[in-house]
Design a protein around this nucleic acid. Sequence first.
DNA 1: TTTAATATGATAGTTGAACTTACATATTGA
DNA 2: TCAATATGTAAGTTCAACTATCATATTAAA
Lengths: 289, 289
Amino acid sequence: MDWHAIPSLSALRAFEATARLNSFSKAARELNVTHAAIAQHVRALEAEFSETLVFRQGRGLALTQAGSALSDHLQSGFGEIAQGVEQLRNATNTRPLSISLTPAFATNWLMPRIGSFWREHPDISVNLNPSSALVDLTRDAFDMAIRFGEGTWRGLDAFLLAEGDFCVVAHPDLVKGRRATCLEDVADFPWLLEGKMRERGALLVKEGVDFETSTIKMFDTNAMVFAAVNAKLGLSVQPYALVKDQIDDGKLALVCALDRHGLGYYVVTRPGLQSQNLTTFIKWLRKQV
Amino acid sequence: MDWHAIPSLSALRAFEATARLNSFSKAARELNVTHAAIAQHVRALEAEFSETLVFRQGRGLALTQAGSALSDHLQSGFGEIAQGVEQLRNATNTRPLSISLTPAFATNWLMPRIGSFWREHPDISVNLNPSSALVDLTRDAFDMAIRFGEGTWRGLDAFLLAEGDFCVVAHPDLVKGRRATCLEDVADFPWLLEGKMRERGALLVKEGVDFETSTIKMFDTNAMVFAAVNAKLGLSVQPYALVKDQIDDGKLALVCALDRHGLGYYVVTRPGLQSQNLTTFIKWLRKQV
DNA sequence: TTTAATATGATAGTTGAACTTACATATTGA
DNA sequence: TCAATATGTAAGTTCAACTATCATATTAAA
């Protein structure tokens, strides 16, 4: 593309409208300017090409051969551009919201609630991508992510969705008949830990748990830890937000809460303007907490 | 075409270059502006669409899916426009010069000289359209006309190419042995007149010719008048410019010159800029007189 | 023919989109 | 760690684009 060969795009736009409507005045009304602006542009084009493009015919204008030829190309070219712009606008409004989140948060927090969003906004489709891997919102075309952390991600906006305070939980049957309100009460139960989550182990050490004398069972995923807890195999450390629902329902027993440590689940977005659909979804999210 | 749906064309142009070159800096150099100007345009587009179009990748930039889709349309659209502009520029420089002139001037003045123009400018083709009818330079797509008259045509530029002084000519054989330097000397010869040219008859009356006592032969075209003169049938009134060459060659005899009356052959053009080829042709014309 | 409505023609004056300047920050390769 | 080369951002400037205005041209209806 040699941009030097192309005269003022505003002038070409003015001429395109003039050619299509056979009138400066009509073109001016379409482009929301005065007829003088249009006429100046068209005269400038004629000077640029040393070629008459339009001439007076009665009340309006008619195209010369040269003007007609140029107009054909302009209509086709600008049409293509308009189409591209149109497609982009449509795509922005109709494509599914793409959201990256951790599998545990998806399973234990979002899935039980997402039905309400779908009922309220049946026209907005949401594409949930559970993955522990960090993603680049821009490169991987996610509109939003829900991440566990301290709330600081370079170059991204984030706000706290749910506190990340950890707690110890067990199956109600397992601790039935026990006081089970502090760690000492359940010191004889095995610990069920996800292999990757070393920080949760460290947290327990800080709470006075002695791994030398405790039984420890490791699992690959948090989903397997939950399955083990439900099988009454032992105790698990989980963010309170993830297990609150099941505790309230009596499906899990809360053994004890651990100290706050400043972590939490954050809604992470790209800075700047957000699509209407994303704004709607985030508003809904805030209503859930 | 709904121009309201299309954002700033300058911004689209900036984005097109950015997308093609994967760099603000390169786009800026191509468009002869600073990188800041390009960046502002692209950011404005992103805000307009609420959609990221480019993101940093190493030293340069990469396109998002949305950016890539838009870029495709823009390249195609702007390409079409560039092509139209290019064709128009080429057409202006390569299409034949189209010139309207009177048949008599073409035959008697221009044709004997045009060979020299073709030799000097073999690349410029000239389309001569002999016609007595007045033409609209713009509507009929003529670059230029040569017309006989007073030099004032509304809305058109004109300059005098050759004086239009009339003279009386005859075949040399016809007036051989006569003094033939004034009208009285040849009062007994017939007048050969073109039917339409009543003003030339009026001119003769003003010169003292008595049509009551003279023989008059009328012809439909000036070419037939010339043929009749060459057949030694009588006298003819012609603009001096048209017969000067033949008088100099001895092919015609000049009987007498008539009074000046302010008419002449004019080069008539549209006001404003002229194509290079037309300028060249007009320059050559002036050299011939 | 006159008048009213609606065009284009032309130009001096105004304005804001586009641009430059300037400095900060980020990435890469030597 | 430094030099080279990007992008990020904001304040300030400028000129292309636009408006306002008046003149002129065309058409249709009175």
